[in-house]
Amino acid sequence: MSIAHYESFLLNNVSTISTLESSLRSLTWFLPGRFKDAELASETLSASLNMMSMYHDTLLARIVQSDPKYRPLIPFSLHTRFTRAWADKNSRYKWAARMLETIRFTELVIEMGLRRKVSAKNRYRGIIILELIKAILRFILLRITRRPLISPPIPERDIDPTTLPSSTETSPTLAPSSPPSSLPETPDHLKNNRVPLPQHTPLAVPPPPRSDIGIEEYLLPKALTTASVKPPLSLVRSYSSPQEWLSEVVYILRPLVYATLLFSDRKSNRPLITILAMELVSRSLRRNVPPSATLERSEYAKRDRDMLWYLFRGTIWESYTR
């Protein structure tokens, strides 16, 4: 019942979503170092905020879908179109993606709790279980889509809550989130006033600045691309060869293999070298993506950038980066 009241409050005051989230997010900056286990409390609050943001995104999507007249000021991104299409098409994809994001939001809190409460051996066992669950969920997504996994697998927020129309019902404690539709009537003593006021110089609208940009350079960013007119499910091409499948399978298994090797051997370089080799193997088996596949190219570029984090791991950090 309380969840229904909370949803009703947000649906009637959609502009308060950003205010609520930013207020809670600011608390995470002040908690660390304030008291014992403040870091754990701050990370717990941050994880809860991420979970709440994911829940708010579902409410915002519900508002957009219920209003056929709504048109966003900025078109939805390719990532949002692709992930939302799969979430609407397949319920298993939707719940597997949400579970995967839930684990991603809370895994650091779980690891911090395990570090404080259990032994190192049991802590690594818990981490292996987390990575095993994540790998299973990723394989479920891979089986459903038969395409490279897009990160994150759920739609990102491309909607400004303040631009959404609120419900006709308003909260008794807050002012309505949108201004009244009709302007107040003109007073009687001003209705016959036909004398225009002289235009004051500071209030005059300055002429638009002249630009030296050519017409083609101005219109090119506004032109539609092939990805803009493609169906959402066709933005990423499905796998067609065993080599492409093997590349994605190796990429999915990396974290699980790393956690398993750390459980048995935490002092040598073998875990780090193994997953770095798996990363390079997955990259070498990756298919060549045409320039028109914008979403898939951006995902692969993100994976390549993530390889820089190896400079801050293990012996690479201790002997080289630092």
Rank of each mutant, 00 (worst) to 15 (best):
Y93N: 03
I129F: 08
E156C: 14
L31P: 05
R34T: 11
I63A: 12
L20D: 12
R286D: 04
D88H: 06
L142K: 01
L114F: 14
I150P: 13
D160N: 14
H5F: 12
N50A: 10
I140Y: 15
P187D: 01
S48I: 12
L183V: 04
P221M: 10
R116F: 08
G126Y: 09
I154V: 13
T19I: 07
S77I: 13
T163A: 12
K36L: 02
Y55Q: 06
Y300D: 07
D57H: 11
A4C: 14
E107C: 06
R270P: 00
K302R: 14
L108R: 15
P255L: 02
F9I: 04
T321S: 14
S26F: 14
A293D: 07
I316D: 13
L203M: 10
Y93A: 06
K69G: 03
L11S: 15
E299W: 05
A47Y: 09
S22D: 10
L60F: 15
V281G: 08
D160R: 12
P291H: 10
P208S: 04
T173M: 05
I144M: 01
G314D: 15
L45K: 05
P290E: 13
I63Y: 04
E43W: 01
F105L: 14
L114V: 09
G214F: 07
T170H: 10
T274H: 08
L220F: 05
S181C: 06
P153Y: 11
P196A: 04
L235N: 09
P221K: 13
R81Q: 11
E43P: 00
P165I: 02
I136K: 14
L45W: 03
S171W: 15
A259W: 08
D57W: 09
L132A: 08
N288P: 00
A277R: 00
L308P: 06
P148A: 03
D265R: 10
A259P: 00
S238R: 01
S46E: 05
L197C: 01
S247H: 05
S319M: 11
T225E: 14
I127T: 08
R303Y: 09
T28S: 04
R138I: 01
P187W: 00
A227S: 15
Y124L: 11
N90A: 03
I159R: 15
K230T: 06
L246N: 07
W317Q: 04
S66P: 03
K69A: 09
L203P: 01
T226S: 02
R98M: 12
L31R: 12
F139I: 11
S53F: 01
S240V: 06
L142E: 09
F9C: 10
R286Y: 06
R270M: 01
D88F: 02
M51P: 00
A175Y: 02
P232Y: 05
A61E: 13
A4P: 03
I63R: 06
V257L: 12
P155L: 15
S91E: 02
S284W: 04
T294G: 04
K121G: 11
R237W: 00
E156G: 15
L73C: 15
L59A: 06
S151F: 10
P179G: 09
R237D: 08
R34W: 06
P161F: 09
L224G: 03
D212K: 13
L60P: 14
R34D: 08
S182L: 11
R286K: 12
R92K: 05
V249Q: 11
D67H: 03
R146P: 00
R84E: 09
T321Q: 08
